[in-house]
Design a protein around this nucleic acid. Sequence first.
DNA 1: CTTTCCGGTTGATATGGATCAACCGCGCAA
DNA 2: TTGCGCGGTTGATCCATATCAACCGGAAAG
Lengths: 246, 246
Amino acid sequence: MMATAPATVTGLKKACSQCNLLESCLPFGMIDSDIHRLDELVGVRRRIKRQQPLYRTGDPFEAIYAIRIGSFKTDVLLEDGREQVTGFQMTGEILGLDGISAELHSCNAIALEDSEVCVIPYAKLEELARIVEGLQHRFHKVMSREIVRDHGVMMLLGSMRAEERLAAFLLNMSQRFTARGFSASEFHLRMTREEIGSYLGLKLETVSRAFSRFQDEGLVAVQQKHIRILDNNSLRKLIQHQPGAR
Amino acid sequence: MMATAPATVTGLKKACSQCNLLESCLPFGMIDSDIHRLDELVGVRRRIKRQQPLYRTGDPFEAIYAIRIGSFKTDVLLEDGREQVTGFQMTGEILGLDGISAELHSCNAIALEDSEVCVIPYAKLEELARIVEGLQHRFHKVMSREIVRDHGVMMLLGSMRAEERLAAFLLNMSQRFTARGFSASEFHLRMTREEIGSYLGLKLETVSRAFSRFQDEGLVAVQQKHIRILDNNSLRKLIQHQPGAR
DNA sequence: CTTTCCGGTTGATATGGATCAACCGCGCAA
DNA sequence: TTGCGCGGTTGATCCATATCAACCGGAAAG
């Protein structure tokens, strides 16, 4: 397996304490004096161009990454070429946790647009987590949230029909854009229909048709990757008691 | 939401250091002197009767659990009654990691047979992880492995056909029985067809039919819950390059 | 010993989403 | 400016799995 792609690297003195993502990123809820200790943590930042990997399956695990700018997808590839997208990640979210287990990354992380991440060397994180009040707990919460999120995706994939899956996906995106101070009802998707389909366990045509049906029913306005949510409640209802629930 | 079910509780002095699961459980790979410190960790054990919950969605999170005897399933319920089984757990595996994130459990853990768990109070674990060499790292690995496992399930649910899913499930069970010193080729499933189906995103009839087809083709011998794997390689091949790969 | 019930198997039929195929239009390169 | 390619949409058809239904057998209860 190839090593990670070349990347621009930036040395920095005050990573976390001067970062505007402080509220939503790993250090959330930590007290001021400790946050300065976190500046030790983030040695460098890396820029990743659209479509380039941050890491790949089999790469040795050395660090986790906090997204500063941009967004990513993670995916797993089967020998026969089948791809399963396991998640989409936005600013403030953490990438690379999969690598701790085997000291190798077990999926690919690909930038959906030109992006920038903070590199958090794992050894340093472990060390600091032992010292800095709350950091260990905070980190455990991040990992646990990932597990809970994955269970939600299993629910999607295992028990929901195509339209429910897409509705859940859109509401999830909306909620995450909101959390970042963007509009809850209008946003731009960074991924293709095929990537959405892979994530939701559907073919791209099915995703496209579901979008069209939502549009016909006045739930959303769709123009390629630009989405406007018109009827939040109906989307929400779609997820819950679908009449012919499997 | 109701509190957890009543349970038999046992006080103990030397939990980990005298436990025969030492090799495969949380403390794996830790040095002897430290393992005795882990005895502090496990205050009590709890017995859970078949079909009873160890914890339920919404229960306050206080501890994680190491399975000493028996096995469990975890599941998520939707309002309309749909169930998604998110995993099956065996001896030495850890339950409850989902609860760290929101300080509430986000799924149900139900015993598949009369079982016994070691209760590991999370606060104590955090504290000890700061002191005991290697424990923090070991714990992170456990969480990370859970994330990787979940990605595998997403792959199953999102990109594999019914027979592939069942083959993967059987091989996974076989591998886990082997790791516990049981036969790799002959074992007893603790869960129903319906639970397997829910886990694999299939209806119970589909699971049953897939079992029958495997039997017809001489891949396994199935007698209710008793499984004998006759042709490991063919099962393995089934997973990889399925001709009509989606 | 008999009855009941639940988990499992098997058959017939229905259907949601996959597949195959045509076409559209925007953005980019020449 | 034109041409090309990729992402997206839409239509026709197919098929894997769901659904509905009947039946079986072992275990537990009476």
